[in-house]
Amino acid sequence: MQKFVGTGVALITPFNEDLSVDFNALEKLVNYNIENGTNYLVINGTTAESATISKQERQEIINAIVKINANRIPLVLGIGGNNTLAVVEDIKSTDLSNIDGILSVAPYYSKPTQEGFYQHFKSIAQATEKPIILYNVPGRTAKNMDAATTIRLAKDFKNVVGVKEAGNNTQQYLELLRDKPADFLVISGDDDLALGITLAGGSGVISVIGQAYPKAFSSMINCGLEGKNKEGYATHFKMMEIIDLIFAENNPAGIKTVLQELGICKNTVRLPLVKASKDLEGRIATFVAQF
C-alpha cells in the first residue's frame, strides 16, 4: 500500500458565494497540490463538509477530480457514517472504478462499544475489495476507537490497510506503531503531530494544512520518512502557528481562509459552519503574507 505513504490531503469543497460548488476553484486546488508534491488526494472527507454535500454533488465532485487528476496520483474517497447499513449500501452503489481506497470515519454520536466499532468496520470491509483506511477522530465522534480494536481489524481483514489516527494522543499512536502488522499503515490525522509520528515509524499524514502548503508540508513528511529529524523540524517550527490558527474556530473555515489568501478559492462555508471571524482572518492573512 505504498500509494498511501507520504502526504495525503483532505480536500476542502470550494463554494461560490451562492453556496454552489466552485468547480473552477476545485480544479485550481487539485492541480496546485499535484504539482507541488502531494502524494494522494482524499475526496469528500469530513474536511470537505461532506455532511452538507448532496449525493449528486458528491458524484459531480468525484467526476471532476478524476478528470483533473488524469491518473497522476491516487484518489481516496470518504464514505462513512453512523448508520452501518447505509454506509455499506453507499459503498456498494458507488462507482469506485477510479478510486484507489476508501477512508471511513468512525461512527459519530452513537458512541458504540469497542465491539460495535469492530462490527461496523467488519461490515464495511466485507462490502468491498477496495483498500480501507479507518478514521479515528474521537474529538468529533465523541468516542475513541482503542488501538487494540484497530489492530484487531487490521489482522482480521486484509483490505483494512491503515488508520488515519486523529485523537491527538501520542500514547495511542505509539501503541498502534508497536502492535500493528508489518504492512499496516499508521497515518497521522493530526497536523501538529504528523512529523513526530512519521519519524516514529508512521506512514505519513492525511493533512488539512498540507493542501495550502503542499510543497513545504510534503517536504517535511518526506524528511520524517527518511529519518531527517532536524530538517523536518525546521519546517515544522515554521508551520506551528498556522496549524493552530486553522483549527482555532472550526474546520474548514480556517483552511478556507488560508486558501482565499493564496488566491485559490473563496472562504465560503455551508451552515452550520460560518466563516472565520475578522480577528482570525486577520491573523491568518498576516501569517500567509509572511510565510
Rank of each mutant, 00 (worst) to 15 (best):
L193M: 13
N144S: 09
I102L: 15
A154Q: 13
I68W: 04
D179I: 07
A147Q: 03
E57A: 09
E231N: 02
L177P: 04
N39D: 12
L153R: 11
P74V: 14
F121P: 13
A194V: 06
F237A: 07
F291G: 02
L185C: 10
Q171Y: 11
A70S: 15
I197E: 03
V21A: 14
I68R: 08
A154N: 14
G201E: 06
S207A: 10
T113L: 12
G282R: 05
I284S: 09
I284D: 09
A234Y: 00
G263V: 06
Y32C: 01
S219F: 02
P252S: 04
D100R: 02
G37H: 03
T286Q: 12
T38Y: 01
G45R: 09
E60M: 04
T47K: 04
E35W: 09
S277C: 04
Q290K: 14
Y135P: 12
P74C: 14
P252R: 06
L199V: 02
L41M: 13
S277K: 01
N36W: 02
G189R: 10
T38V: 12
K278R: 00
K164F: 12
K164R: 13
K228V: 00
V137C: 13
A154L: 15
S50K: 10
L177A: 06
S97C: 06
L103E: 05
S203V: 05
G139D: 15
V205C: 13
F237C: 08
L225P: 07
P252A: 08
V137R: 13
G189Q: 10
T13A: 14
N136H: 09
S54K: 12
A51R: 13
N169P: 05
L85F: 10
P107G: 14
E261V: 01
I187P: 12
L259F: 11
I246T: 11
A276V: 06
C265M: 15
G201L: 07
K111M: 13
S123Y: 13
I43T: 10
E129A: 15
Q171W: 05
I65E: 08
I133W: 08
K266L: 14
G8T: 10
A200W: 01
V9D: 02
K230F: 00
T268H: 00
K158W: 01
V208K: 06
A25N: 01
P112T: 15
L195N: 05
